[in-house]
Amino acid sequence: MLVFVIPLKSAKVSNSWERVTQLFERCIKSVCNQTSPNFHVIVVCHEKPKIEFTHSHITYLTVDFSPPNETNPVAKGDTDKGRKILKGLIYAQQFSPTHTMAIDADDCVSKKLAQFIQQHPDSDGWVINKGYKYQEGSKYVYIKRRNFYKMCGSCNIIRYDLNYLPESAEYNRGYGYYRYYIDHGKVRDILENKGKAIKSLPFPGAVYILDTGENLFDNSKRLKFNIFNRKLLNQSVKDEFGLYNLQQSQNICQV
């Protein structure tokens, strides 16, 4: 079984909780659109978002540790993300996962992931080397042909034991304690140094959503797109990744 872990930022540190909720709802719909029922989703949050979408494979895990404060908000936010991923990974044990995948709460993923993992239960894992970039409202997606995992946090599918979870997890530590769960671009090299060479996923696995106004890091510099990597956001892409325009969806709901 593949267990997805989604760390959701707190309403107290969001620029717009409404926007965060919209992005998250699209993300969770995408994750739950798997072609195989052999998956579960753990959402780790301070406040449970109010969305209409429900699914029997979702667990909301609320935490009581303090959200980030305004002093060095990026570092604090990163640590908060690491705490939540660790919390979710430990909680995932009860579902007996073969693999886990951390998902940023605004990204979308391929509906083929759970089925693929089900077919390779003993593999050490995969990195998403190839994926898509998308700017909200665009008619296009842009293929990132390599090193997608160095750009987007929704990128590592790891055999459960290779998460190297601490025997007694602590949630009041600093950034360094959670680094393995945060530094997504370094996981492949870390595992390779341990003799666990995880592979590249053989298909585009995720869509990196850019410039939402709620990204932990400013990724607007990654909006420079190569026209030769451009692909129309057609129905096939929408169906596989559950990707839809939030503004259009909001307008439809208001009609």
Rank of each mutant, 00 (worst) to 15 (best):
N193L: 15
A206G: 01
D124P: 15
Y142F: 13
A75N: 10
K199H: 15
T212M: 09
A11F: 00
V74W: 05
F217K: 06
I158L: 15
I252F: 08
S249R: 00
E136L: 10
T54V: 07
L233Q: 09
K84L: 09
A92P: 03
I182T: 12
K144N: 14
Q94K: 10
G185C: 13
K12E: 09
G174H: 07
N172S: 13
A102L: 08
V20G: 01
L233A: 12
K111H: 05
P204E: 07
R188G: 07
I117A: 10
Y180V: 07
F241E: 05
Y181I: 05
Y164M: 11
Q254P: 03
K231M: 10
G213V: 05
E70R: 05
G88R: 04
V255K: 13
N156R: 13
A114M: 04
H99L: 14
N229F: 09
P204Y: 07
R173G: 04
R159G: 11
V44P: 08
I128Y: 00
K139F: 05
I158Y: 11
I117N: 05
S96L: 13
L216E: 11
E70C: 02
L162P: 15
S168W: 03
D107C: 00
Y164R: 10
M101Y: 00
N15A: 09
A11G: 00
D122Q: 15
I227C: 01
D104G: 06
R230L: 00
S66D: 14
S220V: 14
E136N: 05
N251G: 00
R26A: 02
